[in-house]
């Protein structure tokens, strides 16, 4: 079970390196969040800690449905149907992603920190997701992909919270969901303003401020 969900999460993250159109990333993110919600549900099934189930439901609603919808709406509104732009080629970036994944696996194997038994499988997965999310933010030139990278990082961190830590206190989790939702709304707002001012979403145009 853990292996199935863990590899599903990894696969959805690596798929982000193969996309051609910006819009594809939204569906992949939704898939990733769906797997994340499965993780929380599986942890609930094993431990019987009730708030993990609540977290699973909220992950599904906020990360699986609302956030992809906001991104979809923003992309539709500003009409970026064009292909993604990377600083490296499509295959180079996949190669770097795989190297980073191996590195993430190695590092988490080296970490000798006491943890709870049930969540151990997920630690390498979350480290890899954090690494790959960061790489997406650096690699892509379209501003929206930086948002996608950020959400991937957040998902990786959330995975650690849900698996190894068996979930955070309820109130804090609600706060985190709320914040993430507001952040994505603001990212969408700023993005459409950037698009109407610069007439492009490429971050290459945004290098006026220096020194």
């Amino acid at each position: 079970m853990e292996l199935f969900i863990g590899s599903g999460l990894l696969l959805s993250t690596v798929m982000l390196f193969q996309i051609r159109k910006v819009m594809d990333s939204v569906a992949i993110l939704a898939l990733q969040s769906f797997m994340l919600s499965l993780t929380a549900a599986a942890m609930w099934y094993k431990t019987g800690i009730a708030h993990l189930l609540v977290a699973a439901v909220f992950t599904l609603i906020v990360k699986g449905i609302l956030i992809p919808y906001i991104l979809y709406y923003t992309i539709r509104k500003i009409g970026v149907v064009r292909e993604v732009e990377r600083s490296t080629g499509r295959y180079t970036s996949l190669l770097i992603a795989l190297v980073l994944a191996a590195l993430g696996y190695y590092i988490s194997a080296q970490l000798n920190l006491p943890s709870k038994e049930l969540g151990k499988t997920y630690l390498p997965v979350s480290v890899i997701m954090i690494f790959l999310g960061t790489f997406i933010m650096i690699d892509h030139k379209k501003a929206i992909m930086q948002g996608v990278g950020l959400i991937t990082i957040e998902n990786g961190i959330f995975l650690i919270a849900e698996s190894i830590a068996y979930g955070m206190p309820m109130v804090v989790e609600f706060g985190i969901f709320f914040d993430l939702l507001v952040s994505v709304i603001v990212i969408g707002l700023l993005m459409s303003r950037i698009y109407s001012t610069f007439d492009s979403l490429s971050t290459e145009n945004m290098e006026n401020l220096k020194g």
Binding site: M137, E154, S183, L190, R193, T197, T203, E207, N208, L209
Partner: peptide, 21 residues
């Protein structure tokens, strides 16, 4: 809503959010 202001806001939002993650 100037180009420079939006650039600063975007950098701030992204850097701040990654840092806070």
């Amino acid at each position: 809503n100037r180009e420079t202001a939006l650039e600063a806001a975007w950098k701030y939002l992204i850097m701040g959010s990654v840092g806070l993650s």
